[in-house]
């Protein structure tokens, strides 16, 4: 029966978990990058993740756009000030960025105005 339980456990595993694992592998395969859970504050880091959330805030001066990226280990906010649109910033797109890690709203890790590179969605299948 343990075999059966294991099988049920394996097949019934939420797709989210499987995806997180897959994203972790994907991020780890990009040379020179740090996992988000290991990123220290104030480090100048190269980080890769998938855009999971896009936030536009019309209040802040000339506006701001934020993307929250996920690499299977944690969430990081990437913030661009002074603009309300960035081409290519789409949900599910892969993002490799390099910048100094700081702290943003609600104590989330945040990188301000980083250099970045967009990749197609790193999906499996």
């Amino acid at each position: 029966m343990t075999f059966l339980n294991e099988l049920v456990e394996k097949l019934g595993r939420p797709a989210q978990d499987v995806r997180a694992e897959h994203l972790h592998e994907w991020a780890a395969s990009i040379p020179g990058t740090v996992r988000i859970q290991d990123a220290q504050r104030r480090c100048r880091c190269k980080i890769a993740g998938v855009i999971q959330n896009i936030r536009i805030d019309p209040r802040e001066g000339s506006g701001s756009i934020e993307a929250t990226i996920f690499d299977g280990t944690g969430l990081l906010i990437v913030k661009w000030l002074g603009r309300q649109k960035l081409s290519g910033i789409r949900l599910g797109a892969g993002l490799i960025l390099e910048g100094t890690v700081g702290e943003g709203r609600a104590k989330h890790l945040q990188v301000l105005n980083p250099e970045y590179q967009l990749l197609p969605a790193p999906e499996h299948g």
């Binding site: 797709a15 989210q16 995806r19 855009i51 999971q52 959330n53 896009i54 936030r55 536009i56 805030d57 019309p58 209040r59 506006g63 309300q84 649109k85 949900l91 599910g92």
Partner: peptide, 20 residues
Amino acid sequence: GDRWLEARVPHPLEIEESPY
């Protein structure tokens, strides 16, 4: 996103992924 900016709502809009 464009519509949100047009409507001039003084609050942020977040678009969250729903991969499944």
